[in-house]
């Protein structure tokens, strides 16, 4: 049976199969196979004792964490204290205004300055004292793009000095002049957290950096303006890591890499102070 077209508002309600829920167009690709119940075990964190690949995390005392909690944290809070400090608003996406109906559904205007939204900088209280979140090691070597097998050496080297399995990096663009092809391995990266991070940090500050003759400290201008500090080590520098020092025949190919300290600080100045308190010297 087909209903005659009517102009009343209840006509829609009579139509079958009408949904009030807006269709969702996923911007992120979802692998639905991985959502099946059998896969839930794999979604668990490895620090969870019921997970298949359980790995105990709290295996020893963490002296960097102790130093941060007992000494550095309270010092930083006092150090960054300002009387009557106000939140410094960051650059945000802006409305076009309401003076014209054409502006109503326009996408928002870009933020002032560089056109990127920035975070608000809040006064430091006991709840937002800057903290080291993770250390990211990024190794890119043009030699790997040329000789594919070197990516194995690079990953073995990074795994050896960090105790964490690194992720293989592949080229994302074709540059003929640099002999770069899409999809070819070009390096590896790893993100260190908690004990692995602290272990790497102490190795770096106590055993590696003091032995590098050319090292004069981190640059006082370092930082990405959002509170992350970076530094680099060359092939000559990395041979001082004690994990590879005694196995020189196993690691004939060493690579320099970039180290990024990701912190919860919102300005570079705060991040530098934090990194300095953890034992990194800075240039004058």
């Amino acid at each position: 049976m087909q209903l005659a077209r009517s102009f009343s508002t209840c006509a829609r309600a009579l139509r079958s199969g009408y949904s009030t829920v807006e269709p969702v167009h996923h911007l992120v690709k979802i692998n639905k196979a991985s959502l099946k119940p059998g896969m839930t075990q794999l979604l668990k964190s490895k620090s969870d004792i019921t997970a298949i690949g359980f790995k105990p995390v709290e295996i020893s005392q963490d002296r960097v964490r102790e130093h941060y909690n007992n000494t550095v944290k309270s010092d930083l809070m006092l150090h960054f204290y300002e009387h009557d400090a106000k939140t410094v608003e960051g650059q945000k996406f802006r409305e076009w205004g309401t003076d014209s109906p054409y502006k109503m559904y326009r996408s928002m205007k870009k933020p002032r300055g560089k056109g990127k939204a920035t975070r608000n900088i809040k006064p430091i209280t006991s709840k937002n004292v800057p903290e080291l979140q993770s250390i990211v090691i990024n190794l890119y070597a043009p030699a790997i793009a040329e000789h594919k097998w070197l990516s194995v050496s690079a990953r073995a080297f990074i795994a050896q000095i960090t105790n964490v399995k690194p992720q293989l990096l592949r080229n994302r663009s074709n540059v003929i002049g640099w002999k770069i092809r899409v999809g070819r391995p070009c390096g590896c990266k790893v993100e260190l957290k908690d004990r692995d991070m602290h272990q790497f940090l102490t190795t770096l500050t106590e055993l590696v950096l003091p032995r590098i003759r050319t090292f004069t400290g981190l640059k006082p201008t370092t930082g990405d303006t959002h509170g992350n500090i970076s530094m680099g080590l060359t092939e000559e520098d990395v041979k001082y890591f004690p994990e590879v020092e005694h196995f020189q025949e196993l690691f004939p190919n060493l690579f320099g890499f970039h180290i990024t300290f990701k912190t919860t600080a919102r300005t570079d100045e705060q991040a530098r102070t934090l990194i300095s308190s953890l034992g990194f010297p800075f240039q004058k």
């Binding site: 790995k55 105990p56 709290e58 005392q61 002296r63 102790e66 007992n70």
Partner: peptide, 23 residues
């Protein structure tokens, strides 16, 4: 400031030892 790591309680050291052995 402290020069060496914290003194652990008996429970803490047992906890770390257990986790270390499990690891």
């Amino acid at each position: 400031t402290p020069i060496i790591s914290e003194e652990l309680t008996a429970f803490e050291s047992q906890y770390y030892k257990y986790n270390n052995e499990l690891w």
